[in-house]
Design a protein around this nucleic acid. Structure first.
Lengths: 212, 212
DNA sequence: CAGATACGCTACAGTACGTAGCGTAAGGTG
DNA sequence: CACCTTACGCTACGTACTGTAGCGTATCTG
């Protein structure tokens, strides 16, 4: 599945975080791909250093030395742009299968932690607010930020169940939320730090919880 | 501790979600308390029906038939107003002590769930975004929305430890985040519903996890 | 009565959003 | 080569909301 095929308000089937598509018949002056790359990296840079609110279309345009309209040609709004930038940087999430539930989970949760240390962590609060008023964007973000990780972790549990390491009747959705929810919770509310130790500790607790 | 003693940007010691204080010497025309009440209830009503973004100072003022300036006289900004309204409606959180850890937790988590079904649930995403760029407001909200509940739950665990129902070496902060984080997670991302069954189930899982 | 503050009103300055129109640039196709 | 089409940069709008300021009037205390 490639990115970049979600038109302004026209979702086809699966919600996606994407750019406005360029025409397909190949006529006319082609898009300057450099602009896409520069804009995305400028957004990530501003996110890191000053947070979501500091990202403005005008500011990004000036930063990359382009016209505001060139940005609106690609993304219908600021929230789409930020979502796209963050998802692009997150990249794919390979579903690890180490044969050990503990290692599978530590891997998945570890990459989550790493992601939260970057622009995603800075952007998340703003994106969550945008999700609350744009259900289509909400679908996209749930799909591209949450779903892939959840699938791989769910699979890890399934494998562990067949190996007999985990009770067969666990509520996987709830367990996944207990496993990852605390990271989202902490990054959004800032009441406690997110550490590497937290990763091993929470996995330890989850394992104890789901043991037969 | 009474509300209403946090001036525009001047916090005294403990961060609070409050109004701008009226003068104390009793001179001059007194504030019309009716305005405070009307404004707060209008905010809660708009939160319920249309969400955080739909709350605008101008809209609230027109809805209660008052001048915008009368609102700014009481709250320095929209985010303070919304935070105040939500916290006011949440009310106090009595730390239950039923003698049973299970019941203590089900009670505390149950009221959290109930709160999320109301205006707080609608406001949370917006408030989280505001917290990210206003550290003073973040302190206030952490204190008034999270801290009281956490304290009472922490106490419940402490009592359970002395009764020998819970391992003495549990990481209370982490366990609390595993207990409540999933609710925040779901209300903010909407990937799964928050149900009454979820309350009993998550408490069940937590109990299994912290058992000696 | 004088002093002090609240209230409503109007006006303003600022920020950001997203849209529209136009001249020019840069590719394809006949 | 002319022609079509689209991208780009620019300028100008229109909209929405924020938060502040000044002023006349209302309402309290002493």
């Amino acid at each position: 599945m490639s990115k970049a095929d979600l038109k302004s308000g026209t979702s086809n089937s699966a919600a996606m975080v994407g750019r406005v598509a360029a025409p397909e018949h190949g006529l006319g002056r082609p898009r300057d791909e450099q602009i896409d790359a520069d804009v995305v990296s400028a957004v990530l840079s501003v996110l890191r250093s000053k947070g979501y609110r500091a990202v403005t279309i005008d500011g990004i345009a000036r930063k990359v030395g382009r016209a505001r309209t060139s940005i609106y040609r690609r993304w219908p709004s600021k929230r789409h742009l930020v979502a796209y930038a963050v998802v692009t940087e997150l990249g794919e999430n390979p579903a690890a299968d180490t044969g050990s539930l503990r290692k599978d989970l530590e891997g998945a949760v570890g990459t989550l932690m790493t992601g939260f240390a970057g622009p995603l962590g800075q952007a998340l609060a703003g994106l969550v607010a945008d999700m609350a008023q744009d259900s289509e964007l909400a679908d996209s973000i749930r799909e591209e930020v949450l779903a892939a990780r959840r699938r791989s972790m769910r699979d890890a549990f399934t494998r562990a169940i067949t190996r007999g390491e985990v009770r067969a009747d666990v509520n996987a959705e709830l367990v996944l939320d207990m496993l990852t929810g605390p990271f989202y919770f902490r990054v959004l509310f800032g009441h406690a730090p997110i550490t590497r130790r937290m990763v091993t500790e929470i996995v330890e607790y989850i394992l104890r919880m789901v043991a037969p």
